[in-house]
Design a protein around this nucleic acid. Sequence first.
DNA 1: TATATGACGACGA
DNA 2: ATCGTCGCCATAT
Length: 113
Amino acid sequence: MPRPAKRSPHGERELAVQRILAVVDSIPRGRVATYGDVAREAGLPRRARLVGRVLAELPSGSRLPWHRVVNAAGRLSPRANGTAEQRRRLAREGVALTPSGRLDLARLRWSGD
DNA sequence: TATATGACGACGA
DNA sequence: ATCGTCGCCATAT
């Protein structure tokens, strides 16, 4: 077994990653959360960028609903691979973007409940 | 140690 | 509503 106890700085990050993944996994179908929301829910306030970094490193075959995480502006954050896949996944669960590519956060935002 | 770069966010113009 | 700036955090060089 890898890590018995002992909290090395590196181990702390691993914990943070696990909590982030758990929060993302809990976002209900048809709802969305911002990077900042996820960070806060994971007990990591002001670490929105860490959330983005973690999601960016997810294996392509991941089963996690990463597509339900959007930025605070209500837009899909640009990335190397593009946002087409994210749009498809959202559309499939009834989440549509306005003509200008925005989401109605007031209606779709999920704050842990 | 210093600088640059991001799936970010809050603000002010 | 949009854009630029700045703050913030983690890595990479």
